[in-house]
Each structure stands twice: as C-alpha cells, then as structure tokens.
Amino acid sequence: MSRPPNRPPAPSEPSGPSRPGPSRPGAAWRRAPASTPASAPAPAPALAPTGPSARPAPRARSAPSAPSAPSPVAAPELPAAEGERLAKRLAREIGCSRSEAERYIESGMVTVDGVVVDTPPSRVRDAQRVALTRGATLSATEPVTLLLNKPPGLVAGIVVGNAADGAAGLLQVRHRATGDRVPPRVEPAHLRRQLCLTPLETTAGGLLVFSQDPRIARRLTEDASQLEHETMVDVAGPVDPALLARLAIDPAEPRAPRAMRVSIGSSSDETTRLRFAIKGHQPGRIERACADAGLKVLAISRLRIGRVPLAGVPVGQWRYLGPEERF
C-alpha cells in the first residue's frame, strides 16, 4: 500500500498585526478584537438561526422608563351642610310655625349656645342649645320709612332699559348713618320690601324716600302735587337777575309761568348754585328749564320733601324717618 505524499505544513500566523491581503477560499478569519476603534464601521447584526431546531430569540430588555406621574384622583365630594336650619329647629322646639320662627329669629330674640343669631337659614347641630331670649314675644313688626342720600349715577325708581334699582342696594345695616340713633337696632325685616316713593333721575342725587308704611305711600303719591321739593342745582357760570327770571318761563306756554320758585344760593365766576322749590316732581323738569334759559347743569341734589329734610345724612347712607316727622 502506497503512502500518500507528504503535504507541506500550513504557514504559521505572524505574531504582529495582520496585514490586509486578498482573501482565500477556506481561510480562517481572525476574531475581531474586544475593543473596536470608534472610526471602525459597526459590525453587521447577527442573523437569527432558522430551521426546526431554532429557538426564539430572547426578548430585549428595555431601559427602565422614568416613573410616570400618578393619575389625578377626583376630589372627594363635599358632604352636605351639617346640622338643621335654625328656623326649623326652633319651630319644632317651641311648637310654632316656620314663619313665626323666622320672625323670632329676625327680631334678635333667638340664641344659639347663648349667642344671638338673627339669620333664619343658619344651621345648628344637635348638641347646640337653641332658646328664646327672656321676655321674647312675637308682635307685628311696625312698618318703617327710610331716608337715603342717593349718590349721582344710581338708578332710583326710574327704570332705564334693563337697569336695576341700584339705590335700593344701599339699604344695608352698614350704610346706616352713624348719627341715627332711633331705633337703636336695625332689624332685618326693616330692610325688606321697601318701596321707592320719590324717584330721582340717574344723574341727580339727594333725598330718596323708601317706605313699608301704606300711610306714607298714600301721602307721597296721592298728595304728591301738594308737596314741595327743595332742590339745589349747580350751573356753569354766573346767573344775573334777567337770566333768573327766564327760568320761570316756559317757551311752549309763555303766558303760563312754571310753578317753581328759583333763587340764588351762592355764586362765583365759574359756578352758581340755584335753589329750586317746586311742588310735585316731574323727571327732567329742572334740566329742561335750565336748558331753555341757556344754562348748563353741573349737579342736582334734592334736600327736602314737604317738611322732611335730609338732615345732614352723608352721601350713600340712610336714616330712619323719626316718629315726630311728617311730610
């Protein structure tokens, strides 16, 4: 048996770095070094094996994401108002109607834990003590009349478009004149259902009468033409006697002078204060008389109606009509 010829030994690998050269079939490629320079191209991704023996590639683990903000939780619904309405509690304890209980409360004759409470919608808990004050009696509340010093710019009794009666909004306890002492205490019922009986133009200011008393209402409406209104009017420039006489003449009816008395209160080169005394009140009457005389009106303020004056009430405040005062 002949022996095969001896094959030449395979060339040994050089110890230094390999030099690039032409590839040969069947030649073994060296494994890439552990660290690849940044300039070297990235190796191609390895292909997953296929075939029946192939195993599914393990899932790649994603980097941990930042913790997400907690989802908003709806605020808990507030519980219903605690306790029971004061008027309902009082009506049950003393055996009266709900409306009578409200009158007791509004009159300041009900205490809660020893403190006077005058608002019927107030709520009390079961543990709180509700009682009437000593000597509390339920009598009919007498109607009252209020005198307000209206600031210019507020609607008062004369509806303009959809404007609300802004002057009535000043009928609050905090707007009572500090010098008013009778009665000593303002009852909430005094400020309700007040009717404006002496309207004023929006641009005018001064005395307004609000009342709950039907007798006062009849006096100021049925006898309105007999009640004298004293009004101070500031006009621009000086006013001489001839110009003053023109104020009493109506151009439409020159033979029938206006039913008004006009005098000069004070005068300067810039303004003149005129005093008008007119029976009855007709909106815009003074402005028309001044316009017919060629006078520019700067301000209007009513000071007196009948025998009742404003009596120094500050602008935006009110006082009670005294028991001895009569229109």
Rank of each mutant, 00 (worst) to 15 (best):
S68M: 03
P67Q: 14
S107T: 05
R3P: 01
E201Q: 08
P37D: 15
G322F: 00
R192N: 06
R261V: 01
R19Y: 02
R7Q: 08
P52S: 13
E77P: 02
I278M: 10
L197G: 00
T145R: 03
P20L: 08
L303Y: 05
E106T: 02
A28H: 10
P5G: 09
S65C: 10
R288E: 09
E324A: 13
R89K: 10
V182F: 14
A217D: 06
Q282V: 14
R273Q: 13
A91N: 03
A44V: 09
A63T: 04
T141P: 12
A10T: 11
T111G: 03
C96V: 13
R326A: 11
V308Q: 11
L148P: 02
R19S: 10
G166K: 12
T119N: 08
D269E: 14
T198V: 13
A299C: 04
A217Q: 15
D213A: 11
F210Y: 14
G51F: 03
V117T: 06
S301C: 12
P309I: 05
R134F: 08
R326W: 07
V235I: 04
P79L: 14
K88F: 03
G312S: 08
V209K: 01
P17Q: 12
L227Q: 12
L138W: 08
A259K: 14
V315S: 13
P43N: 04
T133H: 06
G306A: 01
L195E: 09
S71K: 15
P120L: 12
A10E: 14
A69D: 11
F276A: 07
G316S: 09
V112C: 10
A40Y: 12
R219V: 00
G135P: 05
G237F: 02
V115N: 08
A189I: 12
S68D: 02
L171A: 01
P9N: 05
S97D: 00
Q212D: 07
G169Y: 00
R193K: 09
T36D: 10
R98S: 08
P257C: 04
K296F: 01
P45E: 12
L207M: 05
R89P: 00
P251Y: 05
P199N: 08
E253A: 11
R319G: 05
S99H: 07
Q226L: 14
V182N: 14
P5S: 10
P5C: 01
A75P: 10
R285D: 11
I264R: 15
T231P: 03
G166Y: 04
A277M: 11
C290I: 02
P251G: 09
P67C: 03
A140N: 05
L78G: 01
D113H: 01
A163I: 01
V239W: 11
A131H: 11
L247D: 08
A81K: 12
V73I: 09
G83S: 02
G179D: 15
L227F: 02
